[in-house]
């Protein structure tokens, strides 16, 4: 295969030989699906973490913010 392999780059290095059966377009599709899922989850996690502070009792909010966000 010519050029960088987006799937190998995303997954941190050499892939098992079984993946050779995929065309460059298919590897690109799979890489995009994995990256898309990761990015979506990351956004959801950040939003949930930020929102959670507002729901804590006032007395605890400051202490927890310090631990979580420094």
């Amino acid at each position: 295969m010519s050029g960088p392999d987006p799937l190998a780059e995303l997954l941190g290095g050499e892939l098992p030989p079984g993946l050779d059966a995929l065309s460059p377009e298919q590897r690109q599709h799979l890489a995009a699906a994995i990256e898309g899922a990761r990015a979506r989850q990351s956004r959801e996690l950040a939003a949930a973490a930020e929102a959670s502070l507002g729901f804590l009792p006032k007395l605890l909010r400051r202490a927890v913010r310090k631990v979580v966000f420094g």
Binding site: L7, L11, P17, G18, L19, A21, I34, R38
Partner: peptide
């Protein structure tokens, strides 16, 4: 299209994708 790939290779991709998704945050 993944039906052309050996299941053990698919499993490795899945585990590495799981690590990527979990370890980033």
């Amino acid at each position: 299209y993944l039906e052309a790939v050996d299941p053990s290779a698919l499993r490795e991709v899945r585990l590495r994708a799981t690590d990527l998704m979990y370890d980033g945050d």
